[in-house]
Each structure stands twice: as C-alpha cells, then as structure tokens.
Design a binder for these strands. Structure first.
Lengths: 219, 219
DNA sequence: GTCTATAGATGGATAGAC
DNA sequence: GTCTATCCATCTATAGAC
C-alpha cells in the first residue's frame, strides 16, 4: 500500500490543473495544458512540439499561431507557477502575525500549492535551467520574495525567543525542501488529502524550528 | 552572501566526482565523468552525444567504442549513484542500534552522500524517467531497500516509545526530501561543509521524529 | 486559425579507413 | 580505439494555401 508514493516518476499526477482564471481560452489554453502535462512527465527537452500538437489534436505548426516558440510556452508556465505560489504565500503571511502561526501558515500554503498544482510546481522548479536568464526575471524575483518571507519569519521567531534555531538558512532550506518535493509524489494514487499533508508538514516545520509546542500539545 | 544557495540551477557543483574505485580507466571513465557533468547541468534529453564528445575531446563516434548507447551511459551513472547511497546507508544503519542514533546515522549518511556527490545524486534522482524500467531494475531495488531502512528505524522508535510520530510515511518523506535536495544547492559557492550540513540535518530529523532530546540538550 | 509541405539544423548511431 | 564521413530520423520553425 502507498507503494506508488515512492516511485521515481517525475510526477504522480496526470491531469494538468492550472489555477482558476489563468488558463487562456480556446486552443491557446489547451496548448498550455498539454505542454504542462508533457513537460512535467518527460521534461522540456524531452518533449517535441509534435508531441504537444498530438495531445492537443492540432498540427504542430498551429502552435505558432498562439506562441512564438516552444520556449515561450515554458516561460509562461514558469511564470504562472511562481505567481501562484507567491500569491498564496503572501496571503498566508498576511493572515498571521506571530512567528509560529505565520510559519505554520506559510508551510501550509507552500504544501497546498505543490499538492494542488503538482505538474505546475514540478515544471516551475525543474525546468528553470532550460530558459535564458532574462526570460525568467520575473519568476526569479518571485522566488526571492518567497524565501525572504520564510527567512524573515524564522528570524522574527528567533528574536521573540519562540524558536530554537541554530542556522536560519539551513532551517529554511530544510523546510522548503520538504514542500518542494510534494509535487513529485502527491497524486491520486496515494491515501492523503492535500489538507492532511499540509497540516502534518506545518506541524513538522514547527518542530524543525524548535517551537515549544509542549504546552499546546498537552491540552 | 549565500545568495547562490537559492539559485535555481540544477546543480551547484561543477566538477564530476565519482566514488573512489568505480570510475573506469581511460577514455571510458572520461566519457562517464563528462556525461555526468552534462546530464546534471542540462539534463539527459538536453545533452547530445556531440556535447559529450566535445567535453571529452574525442569524436562523438568514439563514444560507441566504449558504450553501446547514450542511454547505456546514463544507466551506468544511475546504478553507480544508487549503489553508493545504499552502501553508505547500510553501513550507517549497522553502526547504530538504538532508533535515535540509527536515525541520526542514516540522515548523516544520506546528506553526506548528496553533498559529496551532488552531480551523481541529482542525475540518479531526476533522470530515472528517461530510462526504460527494465534497465533500472537494480536501482529501483536499491531505492526500495533504502526507504525500508528509514521506515523501519522510525517504526522501531515508535515501538520503543522514543519517537513521537503521527504518520511514519509522511515523516519519512519529509526527512528524505530534506536530504535529496541537498545535491541541488550544495556546492563550492556556499559556506557550509558537508559535515556541518549532515550534523544539522540529523538534528532536525530527530526533531521531526519527535525524539525527546531535551535532557541531552540541557546537559 | 488551421492545415500541408518543407526548409534547415541537429539528433543518435553506423561504416569503414587507419 | 579513434577518426572522417554519412545515413536517416527527428527537431524547431516558416511559407503559403484555404
């Protein structure tokens, strides 16, 4: 049971889910979703425009009526993925002020984003190298903002003496690593809900940060 | 400072390090190392045999005097990477009997393997999808053995009442996720030694597992 | 906007000389 | 074992008809 969780697929999910409101209408949107599925499963370099056309049900040449290049499709996906993650993290951070609550909210949002949009986060996290740096300026700025939110929260908790952290950078790396991999194993063939994973990982993050939750747990 | 830790490269390291004693001699070994560097940085599908030949300083056709195919080179790298990780984990597990000590030893070994051989672990972890399943039978069996070691250790600690774990599978996923990502940010342009990261991550893993280290820390 | 057809480059792999 | 030369498939992208 749950054996599939450990399989070394690039992604466990199969259907491309994009955040509501961002999918372009018509053929352009279907190209974007098909590309997301293929890039997630086979990688950007391992996917041809003919593969994309076949999945959409159009000739590969038709793609160029909607995007200037294959690279352009990937760039749009990467931007979408980073925008969605940043928006969720910023909303989560704004909803909690105390460091422990804010850390839990950030981790929950981080995990939920990776569990609800596994294909998108896998592509956004693994295919950045395939795009020239100037095309992903926006995504890199969003990444920087995301890690600043996490680090600032950890440091605020240290100053308030509610966290016990030896090295904020290593701690932040450990916490974000847990969440980033969720997109690679979370899918329909495992027994957890996204909410359950988010809740548990938030609890583990508080432990990592050395938050003293003994009183709360004894209640 | 330490900004490079967060950059979205596939790998931070640049030189291909292979475990001692496994690098083939002569041209075959140089092909293996060059392929490792290129697969790690650009991905398997993003690397051509002409790229490999250029880096080695041979004609691309010469590659086929040493390997039957490009796929064959990747398969050998994947096998090497899994073998090295498994050997280290098995050695670590054998050196400690109590669950907390064994968990710390496993995590230290896991992190050290990913920090000392970042290119190899990144390729072994991210390019499995590029090889037909029957060619990586051995690697998949080693993966299964590795996760069993971790899960068994967690369950032993639960039975012995020295761990406080809500869900062993999610806990194991969280702990292994921390270590697996080390290969993607650990490199010469960051301030930590492999030992320092291994020690700190082992400490965080004990916290994740709910090991009661308060007495030890108060000493 | 979608198609057929194709240009032009590059891919993995082989043949055969040395 | 290494090379040059090349086969043939596939690649991204474009041209032009409808």
């Amino acid at each position: 049971m749950s054996e599939m969780i450990w399989e070394p697929r690039r992604v466990a999910a199969v259907r491309a889910d994009l955040p509501p409101g961002v999918t372009p209408s018509g053929t352009r949107g279907r190209i974007l979703e098909a590309s997301l599925e293929l890039f997630a499963e086979h990688g950007y370099a391992g996917t041809s425009i003919r593969d994309i056309g076949k999945r959409v049900g159009i000739n590969s040449a038709t793609l160029y009526a909607h995007y200037t290049s294959k690279e352009n499709v990937l760039t749009e996906l990467i931007q979408l993925g980073h925008q969605e993650l940043y928006t969720r993290l910023a909303t989560a951070a704004a909803a909690a002020t105390e460091p422990p609550e804010r850390l839990a909210a950030l981790v929950r949002a981080h995990v939920l984003a990776h569990a609800e949009y596994p294909l998108l986060t896998v592509v956004a996290n693994t295919e950045l190298h395939a795009v020239p740096a100037d095309l992903i300026d926006g995504a890199l700025k969003l990444r920087a903002a995301c890690r600043t939110m996490l680090l600032d929260t950890l440091r605020a908790g240290i100053e308030a003496h509610v966290f016990d952290i030896a090295d904020p950078i290593l701690t932040a790396l450990a916490i974000s690593s847990m969440g980033m991999r969720v997109g690679q194993w979370f899918g329909p063939d495992q027994p957890y809900t996204a909410e359950a994973v988010a809740d548990e990982y938030a609890r583990l993050a508080l432990r990592i940060a050395g938050a003293d939750t003994r009183d709360a747990e004894r209640k």
